[in-house]
């Protein structure tokens, strides 16, 4: 399943993606998250050490988290701030902690957390505004390492068609 989380108020992007993916018969879900109640991660570590796999913050993020467990691809559509994703986009990533466990292992030369679920979720970004694309590419590749997955690419909104080609 392809999971697309749109943290911007612009639904034209998701409309375009929907039309494209429906025409190809892809299995996908779109979450319009801009109006959802999603807190920042408060770093309590409860999802690792007290309530394994469950976030202590009871808000709309749980809807997204449950979908991530079966998603083969995660695409986050985000506005930008200070050259990076804006805080709404970053919060989607910061809140993924319940998907990994407290346990550690080496993967190659670097330490990684052991994943909680067997599902592998590749990650793509679509951004609006003044984002530093080269840095976002680097960052997204690092993010994917934490999921044992790969980056699907980073695209400005003007290249949403190119991003959609990678959604399958």
């Amino acid at each position: 399943m392809i999971l697309i989380v749109n943290t911007t108020e612009n639904t034209k992007i998701t409309d375009e993606i929907r039309i494209e993916l429906e025409s190809r018969g892809e299995d996908f879900e779109i979450v319009e998250a801009s109006s959802m109640k999603i807190s920042h991660c408060i770093g309590c570590n409860y999802c690792w050490l007290k309530t394994p796999g469950i976030c202590t913050i009871k808000d709309d993020y749980e809807i997204i988290l449950k979908k991530m467990v079966t998603a083969g691809q995660l695409w986050v559509i985000s506005d930008t701030a200070l050259g990076f994703l804006d805080y709404k986009g970053k919060n989607i990533f910061d809140r993924v902690m319940p998907l990994i466990t407290m346990y550690l292992k080496f993967k190659g030369k670097q330490m990684r957390h052991v994943l909680r679920y067997k599902n592998i979720m590749n990650i793509g970004l679509i951004y609006r505004g003044d984002g530093d694309r080269e840095y976002l590419k680097r960052w997204n590749e690092r993010c994917a390492l934490n999921f044992g997955s790969k980056s699907l690419g980073v695209f400005p909104e003007e290249e949403v068609k190119e991003a959609a080609v990678c959604m399958h």
Binding site: Y46, L49, K50, P52, G53, K66, Y103, Y117
Partner: peptide, 22 residues
Amino acid sequence: GFDKAAKGWGCERPLGDRPYAV
């Protein structure tokens, strides 16, 4: 060590538990 710390925090499930597994 992590398992012990978790017990100290009141954790009642294994740390590798999968509450949302299909």
